[in-house]
Simulated scan of single mutants.
Amino acid sequence: MSMGRLSRVAYVCGALCFVVSCSLAIFWGYKVFVHKPSMEKMDQAKYKYHFVLVPEEMDNEYWRLVGKGAQAAAKQNGVLLEYVGPKQANFDVHLKTIEMSAASKVDGIMTQGLSDEQFTPLINRVVEKGIPVITVDTDTVNSKRLAYIGTDNYYSGVLAGKALIADTKGHANVAIITGSFYKNHQQQRVKGFEDAVKSENGIHIIDVEESEISRVRASEKAFQILQNHPEVNAFFGTSALDGVGIAQVVEQYKKTGQVYIIGFDTLPDTVNYIRNGTIQATVVQEPYQMGYEAVKLMIDLVEGRKVPSIVHTDTRIMRAKDLPLTRKNIGEGSK
């Protein structure tokens, strides 16, 4: 085959690869960002404002509750709200969603704060363009975000530590499984817990491991800890999936009632494990309240009213004796 023909074949193959790559990129973008055409084409004249809520991951029961609260407030106040972002936690997609929203000149952006050097400059640029940003669930205190609404994560860790002290009568060898070593809200929960128990001579923190906010990974870490540290008789899981992952391993080891577990949030599996005695307690947040109040805060900002820079939503401990609370009370909180 001549060199000229080889060049033409290479050119055609390259062009085909380019077309396929572009098609896959477009398809990926559509699947990931989940922008609903009906929302984009909707006549916005009947809405006062257009807000965007960017969750850590859309396919997450906790964030769906945040979105549900935000949608309720939006509906009551004539706001067009888009709940859009990565289907599963993905830092780059999260940033891209915020960039796309800002480019669309929405009236306000609500997003989980991310602990990364790329996140703060992006939020600062968005705010400098005149688009207000509120962080929800996790704050980014060094950014120019205009308000934060969500759990006081340090305090929630303190609550968990105090609950463990009370329930174990101040004697426990504890392992902590945290969703992330790098995310600010997870760090704060661990720090609050450590500070709460550090003065207790009978409580020892044996190990701290990372689950990467994965139930499977939390189970793997719990199994590893029990293998390497048989003296461990208590666990604290700092993300919603950690407690469930730990509980699965404790049941597998047939150590229910011998190993104390305190988790986070009220996923149905967590509640079931509390009911059957595998998990003894969990920290209850108010995701519905976060979403609902975030929209109200954003309206106040857009309309020029002064708002507090930090609004902490309710946090409490739930044990088996508290289970008569309805799912609405647990999931939605006060409005």
Rank of each mutant, 00 (worst) to 15 (best):
residue 181 F to G: 10
residue 132 P to M: 07
residue 65 L to K: 12
residue 307 V to Q: 03
residue 320 A to V: 14
residue 189 R to E: 02
residue 111 T to A: 10
residue 154 Y to P: 01
residue 88 Q to L: 01
residue 326 T to Q: 11
residue 22 C to L: 15
residue 206 I to Y: 00
residue 133 V to L: 01
residue 256 T to E: 04
residue 70 A to L: 08
residue 251 E to K: 15
residue 280 Q to V: 05
residue 147 A to V: 09
residue 45 A to M: 09
residue 237 G to A: 04
residue 39 M to N: 12
residue 124 N to T: 08
residue 311 V to R: 15
residue 54 V to S: 10
residue 75 K to Q: 13
residue 113 G to L: 13
residue 225 I to L: 12
residue 289 Q to H: 10
residue 189 R to Q: 06
residue 56 E to Q: 12
residue 252 Q to V: 05
residue 315 T to P: 02
residue 52 V to P: 02
residue 13 C to Y: 11
residue 143 S to G: 15
residue 170 G to W: 00
residue 34 V to E: 07
residue 293 E to W: 08
residue 144 K to W: 03
residue 185 H to M: 13
residue 162 K to S: 06
residue 118 Q to T: 13
residue 111 T to D: 02
residue 223 F to L: 14
residue 87 K to E: 06
residue 102 A to Y: 00
residue 159 L to F: 08
residue 241 L to T: 10
residue 258 Q to Y: 05
residue 290 M to N: 09
residue 314 D to G: 12
residue 163 A to D: 10
residue 298 M to R: 02
residue 31 K to G: 02
residue 323 L to I: 06
residue 56 E to V: 09
residue 96 K to R: 11
residue 134 I to T: 11
residue 46 K to E: 14
residue 270 T to M: 11
residue 199 S to C: 04
residue 189 R to T: 01
residue 92 D to Q: 12
residue 184 N to G: 13
residue 282 T to Q: 08
residue 299 I to M: 13
residue 78 G to W: 03
residue 35 H to T: 09
residue 60 N to C: 11
residue 296 K to D: 07
residue 104 S to P: 00
residue 15 A to R: 11
residue 163 A to E: 09
residue 232 V to C: 05
residue 266 T to C: 11
residue 320 A to S: 14
residue 289 Q to W: 01
residue 242 D to T: 05
residue 228 N to P: 06
residue 71 Q to Y: 13
residue 314 D to C: 10
residue 288 Y to W: 15
residue 44 Q to H: 14
residue 286 E to D: 12
residue 176 I to L: 05
residue 8 R to A: 13
residue 122 L to T: 02
residue 81 L to C: 04
residue 211 S to A: 12
residue 267 L to E: 09
residue 19 V to D: 02
residue 23 S to A: 15
residue 99 E to S: 13
residue 149 I to K: 15
residue 249 V to Y: 06
residue 93 V to M: 11
residue 71 Q to L: 15
residue 283 V to D: 03
residue 8 R to N: 14
residue 204 H to C: 08
residue 156 S to D: 08
residue 36 K to C: 11
residue 239 S to M: 09
residue 67 G to Y: 04
residue 302 V to G: 04
residue 130 G to N: 04
residue 326 T to F: 06
residue 123 I to D: 00
residue 197 V to K: 00
residue 175 A to M: 03
residue 215 R to T: 04
residue 85 G to N: 03
residue 210 E to L: 11
residue 161 G to K: 01
residue 127 V to F: 02
residue 144 K to S: 09
residue 178 T to S: 14
residue 146 L to K: 09
residue 54 V to M: 02
residue 250 V to S: 07
residue 315 T to Y: 04
residue 204 H to R: 12
residue 109 I to Y: 01
residue 264 F to G: 01
residue 123 I to V: 15
residue 128 E to K: 12
residue 192 G to R: 08
residue 164 L to D: 07
residue 237 G to S: 05
residue 33 F to K: 00
residue 233 N to K: 01
residue 86 P to C: 10
residue 147 A to M: 06
residue 305 R to E: 08
residue 103 A to F: 03
residue 207 D to I: 00
residue 332 E to T: 11
residue 208 V to D: 07
residue 29 G to E: 13
